[in-house]
């Protein structure tokens, strides 16, 4: 464990809390992509199967349970909550996210640490997480005004994986740990946020409304 890793996981947790607060307090999920949330449920389920097969960890296990529970709750709210589901921008959330699942599955089938059920699904979840934000970013581009909580949510989500990159650099030098799959997927994932980060920081510094071109 190192500070980058701890900060990264806390940032990830914070992003989910921000989203839950937004949905619960404003009773609205406007500007949030249900497709991205669906993909996150898939990411967590396929990644945390080892909850049942590997020894529990005082640190990882609670996080895994919270990530699973919150991501499923968010999808439940957006799909079935009578008030919240009305505010879902169904017609703007148009990204064909099913087209992301198959390539990640095929890639995981061929590139994985070990050709076992758990490892292939784990690789699938790593690849899928890297692209899961795409529907959300596309939805933000079509949103006329992005509310602060949504902007903060996406920013924290991007920041968490960027912090993981620092964690991997630290672990490479301090613990000689090499992890090609999460490294490359994490780089791609963080790169996808690049322009969002640019406009988010620009709007924050000029104290103006966040707007993506």
């Amino acid at each position: 464990m190192n500070a980058f890793r701890l900060l990264a996981d806390l940032t990830h947790l914070l992003s989910i809390i921000i989203l839950l607060v937004k949905i619960r307090t404003t009773k609205s999920c406007a500007g949030i992509s249900l497709k991205t949330q669906d993909l996150y449920v898939l990411v967590f389920i396929s990644r945390y199967l080892d909850l049942f097969t590997r020894p529990l960890s005082l640190y990882n296990t609670p996080f895994k349970l919270v990530f699973l529970a919150t991501s499923i709750t968010i999808v439940y709210y957006m799909r079935y909550h009578k008030v919240v589901k009305q505010t879902y921008n169904k017609d703007s959330d148009t990204f064909k996210h099913y087209f992301l699942i198959l390539p990640c599955a095929v890639l995981a089938f061929f590139i994985n640490p070990k050709f076992t059920f758990i490892e292939v699904l784990w690789s699938f979840s790593i690849y899928l997480e890297a692209v899961a934000i795409l529907p959300q970013l596309v939805l933000l581009q079509s949103s006329s005004n992005i509310d602060n909580l949504t902007g903060n949510y996406v920013f924290m989500l991007g920041a968490y994986r960027a912090l993981y990159l620092l964690n991997w650099i630290y672990r490479f030098f301090a613990e000689d740990v090499v992890r090609w799959i999460p490294w490359i997927a994490g780089l791609v994932q963080t790169a996808l946020y690049a322009d969002f980060f640019y406009y988010y920081i620009k709007s924050w510094r000029n104290n103006e409304r966040l707007k993506l071109p």
């Binding site: 890793r5 996981d9 990830h12 990644r47 080892d50 590997r54 960890s57 990882n60 996080f63 895994k64 990530f67 590139i111 994985n112 640490p113 070990k114 490892e119 784990w122 993981y164 964690n167 740990v177 090499v178 992890r179 090609w180 799959i181 999460p182």
Partner: peptide, 10 residues
Amino acid sequence: MEKERVHDEL
């Protein structure tokens, strides 16, 4: 491909 199997990260 990878040195260690156990995924100790989230």
